[in-house]
């Protein structure tokens, strides 16, 4: 049977992990490849690198990170951040990425999803949906797409957008609640369930994880097939193994190969 996935996400800037990673026995906690190896050994189901490199000149460093990771980790790797052209995608896949996540470029020009999916297959095109609740408490819930890390509103309805990118060929949705990101109060379950129940492709829930129960809620209540988190793993609050065991204890089938 298919298992739910736990995906740690590493923010990479100019080839180094930012936000800090606090693993025991890690030679260089700033090296994304060292972190990737630690997560691989711990039983992470996939890895996600988010390239937040500020300057165009430093884009090449992410290729090096992906290449070195692919030499060490035999698991799926997704790379997001700054993916704007089909050449960007080809370069990342060539370096060893399995999937790329597309955000702003698709919000600006939806057809980019179609072009990317036609060229590389839907299986490697993840559409990143950054949504923020724009309705007030007493209104029917409504979410809007935001870009630039949640700073720029677009006026686009998040639910409609998710359906649209799937129709254009996205093979997976990475759904981030901008309200919850960094809050540690849990996923936006209403939003996650609405989108997961509506679209045909898998949804990765993201934004707001502070406890292991939040991971359970994302799958059980939000109907996501994967959960993504950063800080709870980076700062050593919980290990991947603890997270997965907690989900198993809550009745969610998980892959526990790492402990074998």
């Amino acid at each position: 049977m298919l298992k739910a996935r736990v995906i740690p996400c590493l923010d990479v800037k100019d080839g180094r992990v930012v936000k800090g990673v606090n693993f025991v026995d890690l030679k260089d906690a700033g090296d994304p490849v060292e972190c990737a190896k630690a997560y691989d050994a711990a039983g992470a189901d996939e890895l996600c690198f988010l390239d937040i490199t500020a300057s165009h000149e430093n884009r090449d460093t992410i290729f090096d990170v992906v290449r070195r990771t692919a030499e060490e980790c035999f698991m799926p790797v997704t790379v997001g951040g700054g993916v704007r052209t089909t050449d960007n995608i080809r370069d990342l896949l060539k370096a060893g990425a399995d999937k790329v996540s597309i955000n702003t470029a698709a919000v600006t020009r939806r057809e980019f999803i179609r072009e990317a999916a036609e060229k590389f297959g839907s299986q490697c095109i993840v559409a990143s949906v950054d949504a923020k609740r724009v309705s007030s408490e007493d209104e029917a819930p409504k979410w809007e797409i935001f870009t630039h890390g949640g700073r720029t509103p677009t006026g686009i309805d998040a639910i409609e957008y998710a359906q649209e990118v799937v129709d254009l060929g996205a093979g997976e949705i990475l759904l981030t609640s901008m309200d919850r990101d960094g809050t540690k109060i849990g996923f936006d379950i209403d939003l996650t369930r609405k989108i997961a129940d509506m679209i045909s492709v898998p949804v990765i829930a993201s934004g707001g994880v502070g406890t292991l129960d939040h991971l359970v809620e994302g799958v059980r209540d939000g109907h996501a097939t994967a959960v993504l988190a950063a800080s709870i793993f980076h700062f050593g609050e919980f290990s991947i193994g603890e997270a997965k065991q907690h989900m198993v204890d809550a009745g969610i089938p998980m892959r526990m190969d790492a402990t074998r």
């Binding site: 049977m1 298919l2 739910a4 093979g171 997976e172 492709v201 898998p202």
Partner: peptide, 12 residues
């Protein structure tokens, strides 16, 4: 019908 296509992830 709640199962997603593509079949994506880890299976036995």
């Amino acid at each position: 019908s709640s199962l997603k296509i593509p079949h994506m992830g880890w299976n036995t």
